[in-house]
Amino acid sequence: MLIKPPADIPSSEITDKKVYLNRRQFIRTAAGTALAAGAGVIATEKLLGAQQPAPHGRKLVTKSSPLSTKETPNTWEHITTYNNFYELEPGAGNGPSRLAKSFKPAEPWTVSVEGECAKVGKINLEDILKGETLEDRIYRHRCVEAWSMVIPWVGFPLGNFINRCQPTSKAKFVEFTTLLDPRQFPGQRLPVLDWPYVEGLRMDEAMHPLTILGVGLYGEVLPSQDGAPLRTVVPWKYGFKGIKSIVKIRFVEKQPVSTWQKTAPNEYGFYSNVNPKVDHPRWTQARERRLPSIFQNRPTELFNGYGDQVASMYTGMDLKKNF
């Protein structure tokens, strides 16, 4: 278990949360608490502020972020029924949402922190979230398959968590691993990818304020098919760089090899920054369709339009070589 840093939530916010819940809902929650056998479930939900009923599941307490785009988000339905989550079913489509019930994130959800850091060990999701303020981060999402959406994520800066892990000077990259559990993930019974899914970020990318650990969508708890309960969101990179259902975070000195890189090294590089000038070998990345549009007519922006914030991390790098 990690030593918690001093709480950075002002006490006013905590009061706020109590005001947020009206009495009736408080009673309902209390009754639920009394009935529930698993204390872990309740603890996590409390931390997520998930007592509020929500249209699709469980509500989160969030605040808005200046880093959000003003663009109109895609609908909940589109974001939760059109997914690339090979662990549930390979291929983009409604497969993952149809099979979402087969994956119920364990309570408590445990993440193993490993490698070049002072705070090696296992940590529960509730402890990861302790002291963090959840923010709505409305980001453009550009899939490597040349489509895009606008997604109102809920999360907090990955950098906050990394700081708490106290990485050593040897930590140059962060490697993430998805849960390996073929009983819950039917896709993992197929030899389509080299399971479990692994992704990586350079330390400065992981520490960037835009990079978040996502736990929600539209102010609600993240549904299974979108990578519950904990995922990364890196908005200037292709969608597959956002790894879902994370169970391991490892600080390493050498650049990790991501799963897609391993599968097709000529098609998917380590960086995978959105770049209209670097084609996928099988299709152009110059344009995208903003779903649900059927026309491939929206010009793709370098770094998915986040160049002002992130381009400086890549100065002097050949982006064609380091695709």
Binding site: H78, I79, A92, G93, W147, R289, L291, S293, I294
Partner: peptide, 15 residues
Amino acid sequence: GLLAGNLGADPLKEI
């Protein structure tokens, strides 16, 4: 499906 808009989020991929 295309006219009714019920081909999901990515109708181009469907058709």
